[in-house]
């Protein structure tokens, strides 16, 4: 498990949700999303949280759960994307990087499985959000990302060999495209971009992830 650096991107503003806080700090059923993710990562020693918008608040909340997280600063978060955050955080990482967005909730048993994996994969889910990035699949592999069509929605969760990844300023999937085709893994998770997503995620969590 400790051949992985887990990168959680929490730098962005997430304005579509309409709260004055980083999305990772929004409580879902009484607990900030970032804490829900950290609870699943107790056995990972190299956890990196990328901060930007309201960095001090994110740091405070993370530190209240565990003190040994490495915070990576994306000072230019207003002008760049999650790919830039991951590019900063993957420097000096372990053999694999596992990328996770700060605004998602992952099914606990799926995270357990993910942490055991030792081959690269692209995490996908059933199509569910308003403006998804889709993945085209062929012979059990992801062969392309697309805004128009695809079988699954991309999740932002990816396990990659650190040495193979090139830096980007834009989306994380720009980093993955040159590495395709890659295996995919179906993950049960909720992404929270809008108030509607939030209500759905809250129900899901309260109903024991069903």
């Amino acid at each position: 498990m400790n051949n992985k650096t887990v990168i959680i991107s929490c730098a962005g503003i997430g304005s579509r949700l309409g709260r004055n806080m980083p999305k990772a700090l929004v409580p879902v059923d009484g607990k900030p999303m970032i804490i829900r993710t950290l609870e699943l990562l107790d056995n990972v020693n190299d956890v990196r949280v990328v901060v930007g918008y309201q960095a001090e608040k994110v740091i405070e909340v993370v530190n209240s759960y565990r003190r040994d997280v490495t915070f990576v600063f994306n000072h230019d978060y207003l002008n760049n994307g999650t790919g830039a955050s991951v590019s900063l955080a993957m420097q000096y990482a372990k053999e694999f990087i596992l990328t996770i967005d700060g605004d998602i909730i992952i099914h606990p048993s799926d995270m357990e499985e993910i942490l055991k994996m030792n081959t690269e994969f692209v995490g996908v889910c059933e199509i569910g959000t308003d403006n998804p990035v889709l993945t085209k699949v062929k012979d059990n592999k992801v062969i392309a990302f697309s805004r128009e069509k695809g079988e699954f929605e991309w999740t932002g969760v990816t396990l990659l060999k650190t040495k193979r990844v090139n830096k980007t300023e834009g989306h994380v999937y720009f980093m993955i495209e040159p590495l395709l085709p890659l295996d995919y893994k179906l993950i049960r998770l909720k992404e929270i971009d809008t108030p509607n997503d939030y209500e759905m995620a809250l129900k899901w969590v309260k109903n024991n992830y069903r």
Partner: peptide, 20 residues
Amino acid sequence: PSLLEVCDYAIYDEKRLAEF
């Protein structure tokens, strides 16, 4: 607080810092 505006990393645990 001013340091958080220019640092690339912030680490709060001594052991983690040494490892990093």
